[in-house]
């Protein structure tokens, strides 16, 4: 997975956004090639932060920078990111192969190498030979692994994940997290993962960005973050 070397640092520079009655203001950065957890209470703006980086929201003011390159006005498809959502990552009416293949070419014009890459990626996530399966016939965990496989073939240096394991049961979350760590070892991509789960945060992330009421209130390494029990919102989060 060659993408890793150029994995960028991501920075939100005084980004302002108004959604309905809510004012959001983000000033933070995400270290290159690491896994950063984005946490905070429900409705604090975690997914919006991800949407700003992916390009689905355009800030009213401020900049979204990838390694000092200003991507604020770039269309989502022109940003070097892959996305994994909590659910519906796969088009339900298309088989696994097509779902992954669309990640390589959105018109599904695939070369022989591309087809091999799809099969390799499936092997990578432990779903060898599942190319022709339909999403409905897969378990929730398997569907998320297909989404990982698509992220792999896309070879984008940034991976944005919005609570990717929230719909899975705890045992499965653990093994999925291990898989994510292993894949990160290979790709060294910059990974941002929104999570509600303190265990997941400890297991996966080297850094934490904590959001409350539309603002970043803590930006720290995971160890440091875990000691910040003084902040009420954080202690509430950590105690589950």
């Amino acid at each position: 997975m060659p993408a890793g070397n150029q994995a960028p640092q991501i920075r939100l520079d005084s980004v302002l956004l108004t959604l309905g009655d809510t004012q959001l203001r983000f000033d933070c950065s995400f270290a290159a090639g690491t896994i950063t957890a984005i946490s905070g209470p429900s409705g604090s703006g975690k997914s919006t932060l991800l949407n700003l980086i992916a390009g689905f929201e355009t800030p009213d003011a401020g900049k979204v920078l990838f390694d000092d390159k200003d991507l604020t006005d770039r269309h989502p498809s022109e940003r070097p990111v892959s996305l994994v959502f909590q659910d519906n990552n796969l088009f339900g009416h298309l088989d696994v192969f097509t779902n992954i293949g669309l990640g390589i070419n959105p018109s599904l014009k695939l070369t022989e190498q591309d087809r091999e890459a799809v099969s390799r990626s499936l092997a990578e996530v432990g779903l060898t030979g599942m190319e022709r399966r339909m999403p409905a016939s897969l378990s929730g965990g398997e569907r998320q692994r297909v989404a990982f496989a698509r992220a792999l073939v896309r070879e984008r240096p940034v991976l944005l994940m919005d609570e990717p394991f929230a719909a899975l049961d705890p045992g499965l979350r653990f093994s999925m997290a291990s898989m994510l760590l292993r894949l990160h070892e290979q790709t060294k991509a910059t990974i941002l993962i929104v999570t509600h789960d303190p265990d997941e945060l400890k297991r996966l992330a080297t850094n934490v960005v904590f959001i409350d009421e539309g603002e970043v209130i803590v930006q720290a390494t995971t160890e440091e973050f875990l000691t910040r029990c003084g902040v009420p919102a954080i202690s509430q989060f950590l105690s589950g």
Partner: peptide, 15 residues
């Protein structure tokens, strides 16, 4: 998510 994915994957209207 379908529309987010389609955009993220860079699908053109025909796709």
């Amino acid at each position: 998510e379908y529309w987010l994915l389609a955009t993220g994957l860079g699908m053109k209207p025909w796709s």
